[in-house]
Amino acid sequence: MDKLPPAVTVTNIKSHIPVVLENDCSKYNSWKQLFLTHCEAYEGLDHIVPPDNPPEAKPPTWDRVDALVRQWIYSTISPELLETILKPKSTAQMAWDTLAALFQDNENSRTVDLENKFSSTRMDSFTDISSYCKAMKNIADQLANVNAPVSDKRLVLQIVKGLNSKYNTVAAIIQQTTPLPDFYGVRSRLTMEESRLNAQENTPADTALAAAAPPPPAAPAFLSLNPYLTFMLLPLFPFPKTPPKPLPYPSGNMP
């Protein structure tokens, strides 16, 4: 009895390739690498990437495995792409090559659009640091998918460049740090600075001053015995200065 090919054991291709390929080029490289890895693991790679030295005769299970690889392709792309590549009597390699040609044609224009977006994105368009950094990292990943990779250094410097004036201090520190922190280190620093600034903004100024200023010292008790003595000695004490109340002299008996 012939041994069943490993490809037959795959029951849910989406658990192996969770990425759905769309017309957008941003996911093509990720989908491609996942698909190649899966085909290599389940002995279907020869059906989309012909070997340098192909065997003279195809194995008996070739057509069955080829149909399975085609199903994997059809199940992991969008309905719009499926309509584009679905043809009668197609093979897995034909479907694979059609997708490759389609995305290579769109690559240059997509690269220009992403480069413009990468250079013009600013933090003011987002609600917080995490959203801003996530968006910048996503654009960098999309550029890598169209064969225009962004170095970690360039990503960090572009993130710093897009910060608003509230982050001038931490931005200067990051730029002067040697070696320059990586993306995750910069995101962590900016997140901490964001938390510090938010805490400052949420603390009322009057409350902060009242908590910082010590209470005024109390006046010595003996001064309360004579209002005129209190008035004469006021300059010597830091307590609030108020004029003394007049003594209740009888009418016409003022000294």
Results as ranks from 00 to 15, higher is better:
residue 215 P to V: 10
residue 189 R to Q: 10
residue 221 A to G: 07
residue 165 S to I: 06
residue 202 N to M: 15
residue 180 L to N: 14
residue 203 T to H: 11
residue 231 F to P: 02
residue 165 S to V: 04
residue 187 R to F: 09
residue 161 K to V: 04
residue 211 A to C: 09
residue 170 V to N: 01
residue 234 L to I: 07
residue 247 L to F: 08
residue 168 N to C: 00
residue 157 L to D: 00
residue 199 A to W: 06
residue 214 P to I: 08
residue 163 L to D: 01
residue 157 L to T: 02
residue 185 G to P: 05
residue 219 A to T: 00
residue 176 Q to N: 15
residue 171 A to G: 04
residue 200 Q to P: 02
residue 165 S to C: 06
residue 206 D to V: 12
residue 169 T to P: 00
residue 237 F to Q: 02
residue 220 P to W: 02
residue 202 N to H: 13
residue 174 I to M: 04
residue 230 T to Q: 10
residue 233 L to G: 04
residue 172 A to L: 09
residue 199 A to P: 04
residue 169 T to R: 11
residue 177 T to I: 08
residue 198 N to Y: 06
residue 209 L to K: 14
residue 213 A to R: 11
residue 169 T to K: 08
residue 226 N to A: 05
residue 182 D to E: 07
residue 240 P to N: 11
residue 192 M to C: 10
residue 161 K to Q: 06
residue 186 V to G: 00
residue 177 T to V: 08
residue 171 A to H: 01
residue 211 A to F: 09
residue 187 R to A: 14
residue 208 A to E: 13
residue 222 F to C: 03
residue 219 A to D: 06
residue 225 L to Q: 12
residue 249 Y to N: 10
residue 206 D to M: 12
residue 190 L to A: 01
residue 216 P to W: 01
residue 211 A to L: 12
residue 164 N to E: 07
residue 153 K to N: 10
residue 217 P to N: 00
residue 234 L to N: 06
residue 228 Y to N: 08
residue 171 A to Q: 00
residue 232 M to Y: 07
residue 195 S to G: 10
residue 248 P to H: 06
residue 171 A to I: 02
residue 195 S to D: 13
residue 195 S to Y: 08
residue 205 A to I: 11
residue 158 Q to A: 02
residue 192 M to T: 15
residue 229 L to M: 14
residue 220 P to Q: 06
residue 201 E to D: 15
residue 192 M to I: 13
residue 186 V to P: 01
residue 194 E to I: 04
residue 153 K to E: 14
residue 227 P to N: 07
residue 246 P to W: 08
